[in-house]
Amino acid sequence: MRKTFRKHGMWTILIILMTALVLSGCGTAGNQGGSQTGSQSEPSAQPPKPANPDLILATTTSTVDSGLLDVLVPEFEKKTGYKVKTIPNGTGAALKMGEDGNADVLLVHAPASEKKLVDNQTAINYQLVMHNDFIIVGPANDPAGVKATKTSADAFKAIAAKQAIFVSRGDDSGTDKKEKDLWKAAKITPSGAWYQESGSGMGQTLNIASEKNGYTLTDRATFLANKKNLKLEIVLEGEASLLNIYHVMQVNPEKFPKVNKDGAKAFVDFMVSPETQKLIGEFGKDKFGQSLFFPDAGKKDSDIGKAA
């Protein structure tokens, strides 16, 4: 009896673990086989099978946290047969992935930093996709009196003067870069116990601001998506300098031969196509009663927001 127990125990574990290994191995092997060769006998109604189906999209947390890419990526995969690996990071990290050739296509929102990549030929096929806007949110009682201000510069001055808590992303993301620019425009170098860096994504930063009764700069999409959990309201919106402009671009295959050139081009084409632009414009209307992103393909940067 003893012996059976002993042997039994050891062997069961080994067998179970082996099964797990084989299963996971099969899973990946199956995926690779299916996608690389495209030899699996699928009915012809299935999407086309590109030669190299793996596409790495480096993007910002806002496109993922808002749920926009949950709508767009499956649509793109269905149409083209590519398999998108979406890697959400701050814009700084997303751009770095492009600079190192670690991504195929970028969807980001920090035009000033993007310009460098376009100028040094790291990014090609640079296209305007859409915009949304930043808003300043804060506690309902508005201790710094931001609601009375008209511009973001005045708003930031009021917050700094009152030393009201301001939670910054502090993660070199597009939103973080924007916030730093706005402080610069207000001619203030924020520091002190009231200025706190969360080092986290937008959703998490909003939670922190809400719990600490602080102010923060956020994109509208993430704010609306998280609103039900937050004790924050919009204290300033609608200023031209608060626009958040998204571009899509391919990583230059001449610089990085491993880049999935065709896949990246297909993604850029998809993002600026009329059907996708329509999807972008309608995204969020059912849930929030307003658009979260405004399609801009074909426009010039300088034209955006004139109407807003």
Binding site: I16, L21, S24
Partner: peptide, 8 residues
């Protein structure tokens, strides 16, 4: 699967 394989 993933954690089981890694443990093995």
């Amino acid at each position: 699967q993933i954690s089981g394989s890694a443990t093995l």
